[in-house]
Nucleic acid binder design. Sequence first.
DNA 1: AACTTGTCCAACCGCCTTTTC
DNA 2: TGAAAAGGCGGTTGGACAAGT
Length: 356
Amino acid sequence: MGRHSCCLKQRLRKGLWSPEEDEKLFNYITRYGIGCWSSVPKLAGLQRCGKSCRLRWINYLRPDLKRGMFSQQEEDLILSLHQLLGNRWAQIAAQLPGRTDNEIKNFWNSYLKKKLMKQGIDPATHKPITREVEVTCENISSTGAEHSSLPPPLVINRPNEPAFLLTHPAIDFSLNAGIISTDKQTFDPSATLDFHQAAVTDHPVSYGTALGTSMRSSNCTGHGSIIGAESISSDNLASRMSYLFFNESSVTRDYQINNDLENTVNAAFSWGSGYCNKVNSSPYQFQQLGETKSEEASKPSPWSQQEQSVITSHNALDFGDYHLTSMPEDYDVFQDLYASCTLTSSVDRPLLLQKP
DNA sequence: AACTTGTCCAACCGCCTTTTC
DNA sequence: TGAAAAGGCGGTTGGACAAGT
């Protein structure tokens, strides 16, 4: 379809958003919620196309956005997820609450990619660049160690699925990232995700549990309060404006954002289906009008069930227990990724938002 | 102080998918 | 059922700023 049709109609503003535009859009969305983006500019009094408004909201004005530097845990997680998913920034962002795909993409391009290259790792494949490492499922166990300084890889095969290669041991996901597809051409990461999602429900110690544990164990003053204690790194004028604006608004405006689950009835924010759909793919629970948006939300929180034991046991992941050539049906890739990235302080408790 | 170069990141572009009529 | 509109995504760009000369 190409360019959004609304952009063609009139001469619309482009470029950086002014504080006034930000305020108009923010006021509109907080008052009326997200509906049809194409009608937002007109109704909000903006000379922008709907697409631009959507982007501005998602990438900048959304109240649950985290601001400031990426933590080490987030960095590790991005590396691991990128290894698994490639440049699927939206999917990666779905696993990092408060971060946008654009933000992660920029972070990757400006920092992580270079960091990997400095370490002699091909950012595209997450394999060492120094020597040719075309590892196949057949010869991987015999040749993998010869081609890199890494310890010999561990192969985990599932019937009818491509093999996963785990760099081992003690598997330091924070450096090596955890899982490498050995066959990029046939490996479909989404299949892994589907598999993972099933595991969230079925596996007693799912990725959702592990992550949720870390979220619960963090304090509750995070991005839910919009500002929290996080620093604003951007010098962008609009950034500063928004920062101040949100600060002020949290006190004086006619909406309220609550971090406490118990108080969500009073929250005046509404969230469009698009956003909720996106969030639904992650274990975080958002509700609208008391409506449960995910199955997990209707169940007793898995977070509370395994809490510290999960973190403790999985941080010291011992892959000696894993079979070398087969994986259990409910093996949860994300569980291990998350467990090995100590998330305990980096992820804030999710917002629970309701339409007014 | 002036200029050049490099870096970062917000925003745009264009394609694909999904939804609506 | 198909076309148009809208939403979503990843790649790319350009401007602001910092660092170097």
